[in-house]
Amino acid sequence: MSKFEFPEAIKSRPTYGTLEARPGKAHLFVADAEGAEAIIDLAKADSGLMAKSHVIYIPKDTGDKFVSQLQDLGINQLYVGPSFEAAQTRLQRSLADAHMGLQVYLCGTEGLMGQAQRDAMAAGIPHTAIQTEHRGSVARRMQCVHCKGITEDVMTDPFVCSHCGLNLFVRDHYSRRLAAFQGVCIDAEDPGNVPPSAELYS
C-alpha cells in the first residue's frame, strides 16, 4: 500500500483524502508515480467514470509499472508524460477549454498535486472543490524564503537550498500559490551550527 498517514500538523499544511467519483460530465485526473493506484482503485469503485475522463500521468521512477493497468481502464483520454513541466501546457490547455462542473482529481506526491492544483485554481476552481489523495513519496517541494528558489523532492531536514546554498529547516507552513512548503535558515543565529540531516518522518 502506497498510502502514508501524515501526523497532525498546523492549519496551513494541506491534508489529503480518498478520491471519490463526483457528479459531472467531465473529469480530469493528474497523477504521478504511485498516484496511478488511486485511479485504479477509483475505476474499480465506479466503472463508468473512466469513459468520461482525461488522465494526465507522470510515472516518474515507477516507469512502466502502472501504465498498462491504466491503459486497460477504458480511459477516454490518457496521456503518459515524462515530467510535470512537460505536461503543464497540456493541463493548462485542458483547463482553458473546460466548463463549470469539471471535476478535478489529483493523486500522487505532494509536489505534483500542489502544482496541478495551482493551475486548476488559476482556471477558476476553488481549491476546496479539487479532490486530492496522497500516494507514494513523502518528499516535499520547498521554497527558500531567502532567495525564493524552489528545491524539488526534499527528503531530509535540514537541507541545502539548491539555489543559494543556505542551510534550511523544513517547515509545515505551506503556500498553495507557490505549491511549496517554506524553508528557513537554520543557523542564522549561530552560523555553521547545523544539526545533522534526518530523513523526513523518520
Binding site: P23, K25, Q103
Partner: peptide
Amino acid sequence: TAELGWPLES
C-alpha cells in the same frame, strides 16, 4: 448546480 458538479463557493 450541485447536480451538475458546480463548487459550492461558486
